[in-house]
Design a protein around this nucleic acid. Structure first.
Length: 609
DNA sequence: GTAGGGTTAG
């Protein structure tokens, strides 16, 4: 009888709905067989596989006789329900109530909970118990130890355990590879992969996506190409969404398009992860139109899809569209998350919708129970600053429940300059001086603020501090993407083979700009030097070189796409507005914090960044 | 005496 029921239960476990299992449970109860170990244990696991954690827990509680299998089942059930802390808190009862000792299955489940909780200390304790137990040679538990140490960031301990595994399977190898890759230890990660006899898509995915997580985009992409050459079949779209993420981070539009083609070729265009990655990739590669198309083609949209396009539109200065899409999203019944609100408040700051932004901030807390983080406060602050509500901004800065860094104060300082709030500017500047300044552009702001109030002693103090702290500007560079080719330019006179053509073009443009009223703003130059020399510095800024090169070599009439590592300098921003209207071309610059679409003499950022 | 439970990438 038991065997027959167990067979049926096993079938239920593979079924996609829980009702056959529940019916059998009722049947078992009627027969009074629920006391027999294997039957309730199987039921616990069926319930948990169908997400019915309450039923699983209830059954576990009611069991008169529990054994280690019951314990392994309930711990796994909590882990599966994303409640690893429940596993940890219930576990001591295994000794206290049931007088049982954990076996290797229980250890593996516990380690899984520790990994999910990032609880290294606890994990080490479980490790110690495991070593002292009768199961200390179990390889699978050792694999979960490797995984736990990796997830807690203790990669070297993970490696030590990994080396003691007698029969390594694909799971142990993959865990170790992903550990090295996610902590950016590329060489070691690759070495482990090379040691594997049978490499799978899994192991390559761990390597490539781990490296992408740790910011090693280019190495990851090279390895992805190598994987394809090795003939590994991409039977699962996971790695493709990772690679799309890398393209997005590198703003590599052509690469992203190629991966998009691969997605279509392999038939993964309906995978939600892939669709969301495509929306984000196109937006970050500054092709917001393609991002909108990708969004439209996403059949089953989730919060991430909506949020990706809302944030994308907001960053590209299309605030109205972003806010309109939010209304559509709410109509579909989806709940926005923290990231959605960052995009929305950011959008408001672009069009000066102070009240809408403030309402959204309130709605996030009151209607959706979300906790505003530093990013939300920074966006709100931006909204106040750029709309000229500087008292509100200063008040918010002084009352918000977060430690505020230099960049945030600096942005308020720059708003003070813009709106001519000299007194507040000095107050903020003094604050910044007390905070300690590292960013060279902050020094410029400080020096300008004091100079504007004729506080020459303080100007001298800032200069002196700059020398003492030996401020070095991170070298600025700009890349211009022309089809499959990319050129990189650093600030300063270039040694590029086309240097002369570029100089002539920039000089011609300079002449035309001056006719149209351009006056170089040398206040953006950090170094102490004469006016002419400062203008010369500006002339060779990397974003101008990139644009000049794009104009000379790009397809006539096409959009010029530039990616800069730092923020666009204020003077260059003015210059690019002139250039786009002189040459009648659209120029898109992605800088360290946002996108600038220069078109018809205007920029999508409305001159605030 | 047997079943039943564990580990990998967003």
């Amino acid at each position: 009888m038991h065997h027959h029921l167990l067979q049926s239960l096993r079938l239920c476990a593979t079924s996609s709905n829980p009702f056959p299992g529940k019916t059998l449970h009722a049947h078992i109860l009627k027969l009074g067989l629920d006391q027999y170990g294997a039957l309730p244990n199987t039921l616990i696991s069926i319930y948990s596989k169908h997400g019915l954690i309450k039923d699983a827990h209830h059954l576990f509680d009611e069991m008169p006789q529990r054994d280690p299998v019951s314990w392994a089942s309930i711990l796994t059930a909590f882990n599966r329900a994303n409640l690893p802390n429940r596993s940890i808190s219930i576990f001591p009862n295994m000794f206290v109530h049931d007088c049982l000792q954990p076996d290797h299955f229980v250890f593996a489940s516990l380690l899984n909970s520790c990994a999910a909780l990032n609880a290294l200390h606890l994990g080490r304790q479980v490790h110690a118990q495991f070593v002292l137990s009768a199961f200390s040679s179990d390889d699978i538990t050792k694999s979960s130890l490797v995984d736990m140490y990796v997830k807690c960031g203790a990669v070297d301990i993970a490696r030590a355990v990994f080396d003691t595994i007698c029969l390594k399977n694909s799971v142990s190898w993959t865990a170790m590879i992903s550990g090295y890759a996610r902590s950016g230890r590329k060489l070691e990660a690759v070495e482990i992969l090379r040691d594997m006899k049978v490499q799978s898509l899994f192991s390559w995915t761990a390597l490539v996506s781990g490296l992408i997580q740790s910011g090693h985009f280019v190495s990851a992409l090279r390895l992805f190409v190598e994987m394809k050459q090795e003939g590994i079949k991409i039977v699962d779209p996971f790695i493709l969404s990772s690679v799309l993420g890398a393209s997005a981070n590198l703003a590599a539009l052509e690469l992203g398009k190629q991966v998009h083609c691969l997605v279509t070729k392999l038939g993964f265009e309906s995978s939600l992860y892939v669709c969301n990655a495509l929306i984000d990739m196109y937006a970050k590669c500054s092709d917001i139109i393609a991002a909108k198309i990708a969004f439209r083609y996403t059949i089953k949209k989730d919060v991430v899809s909506w949020t990706s396009i809302i944030v994308g539109l907001a960053q590209h200065g299309k605030a109205k569209e972003a806010l309109a899409l939010y209304d559509d999203m709410i109509l579909t019944g989806l709940k926005p998350n923290e990231v959605t609100f960052v995009g929305l408040i950011y959008a408001c700051s672009h069009v000066g919708l102070v009240n809408t932004g403030r309402d959204l901030f309130k709605s996030m807390v009151d209607d959706y129970g979300l906790n505003p983080n530093l990013q939300h406060y920074t966006c709100l602050l931006d909204l106040y600053s750029r709309s000229g509500y500087l008292d509100e901004a200063e008040n918010l800065l002084n009352t918000m429940p977060f430690e505020v860094d230099e960049a945030v104060w600096a942005s308020l300082l720059s708003a003070c300059k813009r709106f001519g709030k000299t007194q507040m500017g000095i107050r903020v500047a003094d604050r910044l001086m007390g905070l300690g300044v590292e960013d060279p552009s902050t020094y410029i702001l400080l020096s300008n603020a004091y100079a504007g109030a004729s506080m020459w002693e303080n100007v001298a103090k800032v200069r002196k501090l700059m020398v003492v702290t030996d401020v070095k500007k991170e070298p600025g560079y700009s890349c211009v993407h022309l089809g499959k080719e990319t050129e990189v330019f650093y600030a300063g006179e270039t040694g590029h083979p086309m240097k002369n053509e570029m100089r002539v073009l920039l000089e011609d443009l300079d002449e035309e700009m001056r006719k149209r009223g351009y006056v170089p703003d040398v206040s953006y130059v950090l170094h102490d030097m004469g006016k002419q020399e400062k203008e010369n510095q500006l002339f060779w800024h990397s974003e101008r070189l990139a644009v000049a090169y794009g104009l000379l070599n790009g397809v006539p009439g096409s959009v010029i796409r530039v990616v800069k590592n730092l923020r666009v300098c204020g003077d260059c921003h003015t210059v690019l507005k002139f250039i786009c209207s002189i040459v009648g071309r659209e120029i898109v610059v992605r800088d360290a914090s946002r996108f600038h679409h220069f078109k018809d003499g205007k920029c999508s950022c409305s001159d605030f960044w």
